[in-house]
Design a protein around this nucleic acid. Structure first.
Lengths: 219, 219
DNA sequence: GCCGGACCTCAACCGCTGGTAGAGGGTTGA
DNA sequence: TCAACCCTCTACCAGCGGTTGAGGTCCGGC
C-alpha cells in the first residue's frame, strides 16, 4: 500500500492521458460545482482518492461522449451514490429541485419507481405533513405500503401552490376522478399490465387533456 | 387535399402540445442554423411540410431528452438525410428521459389565436371531415363562428391517433367534462378574463392532472 | 380599401454554462 | 532559501441558444 491519495497535479497527469483538455482549473471548477469533494490535508491541499479520480473520469467521459450538462451529470452521480443503477439510460428523478416538473409527455420508465417515506416526501415537496394527510384523505396521494412514488412529489408541490390561490385539496377531488377514468380507459385497451402501449396512450390522453383545457380557457 | 403545408404559427400550435417551450423565434432560429429548410411562398412566408415538422420534432426531442447540442443534432440529421442510421447513442424516437427537464408548462403567449376553417383544420391535423364532425358532436372541438382555434388541431390529431387503438370520440366525452370542470375551477379564482394568473393556474392544474395519471398507471 | 394580425428580415442584446486568468499568498522539500 | 506546487478569490470571457424590437410586407375580413 503506497500512497492512495493524489495531489491535484498528480490527478491532472493521470487524467490528461485520457482527456487532453482537462486542466487544474477545470478540476477545481468541478469541485466548486460539487461534482467531486476530495479530502484536504491539514494545510488545505486537496487529496484525491482513487474513487475521486474515478468520479472525475466519469464526469469527463459523460461530457465528452454524451454531451451531458454538468447539472445532469451531477444528478447521475447523486443517484449512483444513493445506490441506484449505473446510469446507463438516464438520470433518476431529481426529487428536490423546486421548478423541475416532469416533461410534458414522458411516460417512460422514469423515477416513478422511486420509493419515498412520508418524511422524505414532505421534505422533497416542501409541504407540511398536514397537507399531505389531507391529500391522502382525498385520494390524491396514495401510499403503496409505507412508501410513495415520485409523482407524489409533483402532486404535493402543485397542491401546495394551488393552496396559495385558495384552492384546497378537497377542490381537487375531480382531478382524481378524471385521472382514474383516464387510466381506466387506457387499461381497457392495453390490459392491466404496463407496456409501451400503456405509456404511449397515456401520453396521448394527457396531450388531449391539455389541449382541451387550453381550448376552453378564456381568450 | 387542400393544404398539407403549415404556416409557422400552425407549426407552433402543433409542436407546443408536445414541447411546451417552443416559440416562433426558436423555430426561425432553427432554420437559421440550418436544421430545417421549409419551403417559401412567393411572398416569402415559410411553409412547413409534414416532413419539416417531423424534423423539428426530432430536433426538439433530441434537445430535451438527450441534451444534445444543435451542432450534433445537425450532424445526425445530415446522416439521416444521407440514408444512414441515426447514429449510436441516439434513437430518434426514444421518448424516455427522466424528469430533469426545465419544462415549466407554458400556457402563456399561446401564440396566435389561430383561426382555421374547417378544411384547414382537417388538413392540418390530417383527419377526415367525418371525424371532425363526430368530435364536434361530442363537444370536443368547438367552432367559434366559422373558425377553429389552434388547439383543435391537437385535439383532432390525438383523437385520430386514439382511434387507431379503438378509442372513439364518444369515449372521449369525459375528457371534455374534466376540462370544463378544470377551467371552471380556474375561473372561479381568477374570474372570466384571461390573465397571467389564469395561465399560471392552468399550467398547475394540467401538471397536477399529468402527475395523477402517471401515478395511477399500472406499475 | 383599409385595418389588424400574422408574417418577414436583420441586428442587437441577453442569460446561462463552462470554464480561464491572474493577483496575492501559503506550503513543501531538496 | 528557493523553486515548484498549491491555495482562494475575483474578474473576465466565449459560445450557445435563443429573445427582443424596429421597421416593413402580406393577407383576410369587414
Amino acid at each position: 500500500m503506497a500512497k492512495p491519495e493524489l495531489s491535484i497535479g498528480e490527478v491532472l497527469q493521470v487524467l490528461q492521458a485520457e482527456f487532453t483538455d482537462v486542466t487544474i482549473s477545470k478540476i477545481r471548477f468541478l469541485e466548486a460545482e460539487g461534482l467531486v469533494t476530495p479530502a484536504r490535508t491539514a494545510s488545505g491541499y486537496r487529496k484525491f482518492s482513487a474513487g475521486d479520480v474515478e468520479r472525475l473520469r466519469y464526469v469527463l467521459t459523460a461530457q465528452r461522449d454524451q454531451y451531458l450538462p454538468l447539472k445532469v451529470i451531477k444528478e447521475h452521480l447523486g443517484a449512483i451514490d444513493r445506490g441506484l443503477r449505473p446510469a446507463a439510460g438516464g438520470p433518476p428523478i431529481a426529487p428536490s429541485t423546486p421548478a423541475a416538473g416532469p416533461a410534458a409527455d414522458d411516460f417512460g420508465a422514469t423515477g416513478t419507481d422511486l420509493r419515498l417515506t412520508r418524511a422524505e416526501l414532505c421534505a422533497a415537496a416542501g409541504v407540511s405533513t398536514a397537507l399531505l394527510a389531507e391529500l391522502e384523505s382525498h385520494g390524491l396521494v396514495v401510499a403503496d405500503g409505507k412508501h410513495y412514488g415520485g409523482d407524489a412529489i409533483v402532486v404535493a408541490q402543485v397542491a401546495a401552490e394551488l393552496a396559495t390561490y385558495g384552492i384546497e385539496p378537497r377542490h381537487l377531488r375531480p382531478f382524481r376522478t378524471a385521472a382514474d377514468r383516464e387510466v381506466g380507459l387506457i387499461e381497457q385497451v392495453t390490459g392491466p399490465r404496463r407496456t409501451d402501449q400503456t405509456q404511449e396512450l397515456a401520453a396521448l390522453t394527457v396531450r388531449l387533456h391539455t389541449a382541451l383545457v387550453r381550448s376552453r380557457l378564456p381568450r
